[in-house]
Simulated assay, not measured.
Amino acid sequence: MPEPQDVTTVACVGAGVIGGGWAAHFLARGYRVRAWDPAPGAAERLGRLVEAAWPALTELGLADGASRDNLTVLPTLAEAVEGAGFVQESAPEDLAVKRSLLAGIDEVTPADVVIASSTSGYGMSEMQTEATTPERLVVGHPFNPPYLIPLVEVAGGTRTEPWAVEWASEFYRRVGKSVITMDHELPGFIANRLQEALWREALHMVANGEATVEQIDTAITDGPGLRWPVHGPCLTFHLAGGEGGMAHMLDHFGPSLRAPWTRLDAPELTQRLRDDMVAGCESEAGERSIADLVAERDRAIIAVQRAVEASRGRRGE
């Protein structure tokens, strides 16, 4: 099978918003992209998607040899995967469609080529049921737009071999992605579950007349959202404990988990959960002290605020 660094051609199956975003990203990283989508007018829409993404990609910096001319839209699935060292499937979120399409890709793609699905919720175990060689099928879940948001969550199914997950994770890293290689299948994956919890609470507050849409958005953009780009929710609460870190935070604020602040049931704060959270924060922090993390957070918040203000200023011109 090809090594991740030896891949020069990628097949994008499905050319909607996500598939088109993937195509733009791979093109910007210097790959040749072969695309296929059965929908009428797909080639024209894909061209417009790539064209719209190209200014942002150019500002970020294009790889050597990157060109929109490296995009080819093929009339059949078999032609699209021909010569590709990796396949990214981005069909609509319909389980029957996913199963059938992945089986079709599997049938016409050499057995040593990894096939990844952009699904945002289905587990690979439930999608790979009709494939002949399911061991090379993985989930490669991106975030929209895939050409700008770096995160990709990679997971296999019950019939996926570990080598395929490892190969896909390494390939995504080589194309500039931030990769979470998941240890277990989890419905909705990690990031979707987190943003879904926030989204559901927002809907509850609007439905009950407790907050307006604008108030909810401002609460995030001018509140915790400024901290999350650098530390995320766990290290953010680690700093909330002061010099005592996550241990002090949980010991001090742990009882508030039982307060009816949200519509979600809180897990029991067992000793094991407490210890896992403390150990996780210590591991993520590494050699950075609380003071180091505070300084890092403050620099990042200032940078984010200045960047947002500059963007708003350009928008108002």
Score class of each variant (00 low, 15 high):
9 T>G: 05
17 V>Y: 00
22 W>N: 05
23 A>C: 12
25 H>G: 01
29 R>S: 14
35 A>Q: 08
38 P>L: 02
39 A>S: 15
40 P>E: 11
40 P>W: 12
41 G>Q: 08
44 E>C: 08
45 R>Q: 10
46 L>V: 13
57 L>H: 02
59 E>R: 11
60 L>D: 11
60 L>V: 04
64 D>W: 03
71 L>R: 00
72 T>K: 11
80 A>P: 03
80 A>Q: 04
81 V>S: 01
81 V>C: 02
85 G>I: 03
87 V>T: 01
87 V>S: 10
90 S>I: 02
90 S>H: 09
91 A>I: 07
92 P>W: 06
99 R>Q: 15
103 A>F: 04
107 E>T: 12
108 V>M: 10
115 I>F: 12
117 S>A: 11
122 Y>T: 01
123 G>C: 14
124 M>L: 12
125 S>M: 02
125 S>I: 00
125 S>A: 03
126 E>L: 00
126 E>M: 00
133 T>D: 14
135 E>T: 10
135 E>R: 10
137 L>P: 04
137 L>Y: 01
139 V>P: 05
141 H>S: 10
142 P>Y: 00
145 P>A: 12
158 T>P: 03
160 T>E: 04
161 E>W: 05
162 P>M: 05
164 A>M: 12
165 V>G: 01
167 W>F: 10
170 E>F: 09
170 E>K: 11
174 R>K: 13
177 K>D: 01
177 K>F: 05
180 I>L: 13
180 I>S: 15
184 H>W: 09
187 P>C: 09
191 A>G: 12
191 A>M: 13
201 E>A: 07
204 H>P: 00
204 H>N: 13
209 G>A: 08
211 A>I: 05
214 E>N: 14
215 Q>M: 07
216 I>H: 11
216 I>L: 15
225 G>D: 12
225 G>A: 10
226 L>N: 09
227 R>C: 11
227 R>Y: 14
228 W>Q: 05
229 P>S: 02
230 V>K: 09
233 P>E: 11
238 H>M: 05
239 L>V: 07
239 L>Y: 03
247 A>N: 02
255 P>F: 00
256 S>C: 15
257 L>W: 11
269 L>W: 04
270 T>G: 07
270 T>L: 08
273 L>F: 06
278 V>M: 01
279 A>T: 08
281 C>K: 02
284 E>Q: 13
285 A>H: 09
285 A>I: 07
287 E>G: 01
287 E>S: 08
289 S>M: 03
293 L>G: 02
302 I>V: 13
303 A>F: 12
304 V>T: 09
304 V>C: 12
306 R>F: 03
308 V>C: 15
310 A>I: 09
312 R>Y: 13
313 G>S: 15
314 R>M: 15
